[in-house]
Design a binder for these strands. Sequence first.
RNA 1: GGAGAGAUGGCAGAGCGGUUGAAUGCACCGGUCUUGAAAACCGGCAUGGGUGCAAGCCCAUCCAGGGUUCGAAUCCCUGUCUCUCCGCCA
Length: 424
Amino acid sequence: MFDLRAIRENPDFFDKGWARRGLKAQTPAILSLDEQHRAVITEMQDLQSERNTVSKEIGKIKGQGGNADAEMARVAEIKEQMPALEEKERQLGEELHTLLSSLPNIPDDAVPEGKEEDDNVEIRTWGEPKRANDIKDHVDLGESLGMVDFETAANMSGARFVVLRKDIARLERALGQFMLDVHTQENGYTELSVPLMVREECMYGTGQLPKFREDQFQTTRGDWLIPTSEVALTNTVREQILDAADLPLRLTAYTPCFRQEAGSAGKDTRGMIRQHQFYKVELVSITTQESSMEELERMTKCAEDILQRLEIPYRTIIKCIGDTGFTAAKSYDIEAWVPSQNTYREISSCSTCGDFQARRMKARYRYAGEKETHFVHTLNGSGVAVGRALVAVLENYQNADGSITVPKVLVPYMNGTTVIKKEG
RNA sequence: GGAGAGAUGGCAGAGCGGUUGAAUGCACCGGUCUUGAAAACCGGCAUGGGUGCAAGCCCAUCCAGGGUUCGAAUCCCUGUCUCUCCGCCA
C-alpha cells in the first residue's frame, strides 16, 4: 500500500519506481480517482454536517415543546440524498484501494536493472563447489538408501509431496533444530511457535493477497495456510503502535509452509526442490525506518552463517529489478550449490519491504514522548529453507558408496550418527 | 457442542436515545510552589480523514458490519474476540 499524500506530492517518484518494474505510469489514474473520491467525501461531509446541526436543533425545539416539522423535513431531504453519495464514495474508495493494493513496492536505488533470474548480480561466493562425474542427485541417493519415498507420498497426496524415513527424516528435523538454535542463541532472534492458518487480513497485510491468491491454499472455513511463517511472524505487530525503544524485534519460527506452485507447472518436478509442503526456518525483523537497510545486511549474514556452519558452498546475489518480489524493496538471495544440477539454487531470500507491509498492516512505532507515529519497516528472510537445505546436504555430503556423511554441526542432533547408510 | 456474561480513550472505569468525543481516577507532558524532590495546585493529553496559506472549521470512530430513528456509545440483527459453567477431546 502507498501513501496517497506522498503520491500527490511526488507522483514522478512512484511512476519511475513502477516503470523500473515494467509498469506504465500509474499515478494519473490514481490521482484522478483520488480527486473524485475526495470531492465526494467533501460533498458528503457537508451534508452530514448540516444534518447533525439540524438534528440538534430538533432536539432543542422538541425539548421546549415547539414544532420542528420544517427541520425534520430538511433532514428527510438530506437523508434521501445520502445513499447515492455513499454508494459513489464506496465505489471510488474501493476502486482506489484495489488499484493501490495490486501495485508492487517501489524498488530501492541499489537494485540492479534486469528482467529475469539471469540478470541477478553476484555479490560474493563461499566454499568450493563439488564437481565430479559420478555425482548422484538427492532422489537417487535417498531412494537407494530407502529413506526418500516419492511413490508412497504420491499415492496419498499426489505430486510434489514426499515421505522421508529413518535417518533422513531425522536429518530434516536436525537441520531445523540446528538453525533455530543458532538464530536464537547466537543471532539474537526470539523463537515463536505460530498458527499455520491465518485470516484473510494477515495474508493481505504481508502482501500474498489479493494478488497471489492462486498460489495459496484456503481451508473450508476460509482461513489460509501460511506459505511461509513470515506471514504469522510479521502479523504479530499488525495494528500496533510499538515503542521505538523496543525495536528492532527479531523473530524466528520453524514451520511447514504450503504453496500451490500454480505458476511452476513442469518446473523442478523431480525431487524435493519444489514441494507443496516444506519446512522452513524464517527470520523476521521489525525495525525503524533508519535501520532497515543495515538490518538487511545483518539478516543476510545470519542466513549465510547457517550454510557456512554446514559447510555448504553458496553464493549471494542481489536480485535484479525483474526478479524482486512484489512486496520487496531490495532482496538478496542465497543460493546453495547443488552438485547434481551443477549450479547454485536458491535456499534463502532476504528482503526489506520498507513500510510496504506496515502500511497494509497498520503497524507503527513511536519515540518516547513524541506524538507522531511512523510505519515500521519489515524484513523477512529464510534462515534457511529446510527442505532445500536437506537436498544440499544429501548431495554435497554424498560418498562414492551412496552413503551420506552427516555435517559435523549436525552430529549432536543425530544422536551421534556420523554417516547415514543403508541398513542391514 | 450446550448455557450464560461481556467488549468504552495508555490503563482502570462511568455513561437517561438529544451540546457525550465521551464523567471520574491513575499514568503521562508542561507550569506554579520548593535549595532539590515529594505533596499540593493550575493547565494539557485519542485516532483516521476532508478543507484551508494559517489559526481553525468540519466528518468519522465507544470491537466490526448492517438496521431502527429527525437524532445511537446507549435500541435491534449478524460477525469477531474474551470470560464463566457443562459436555467432548489430543
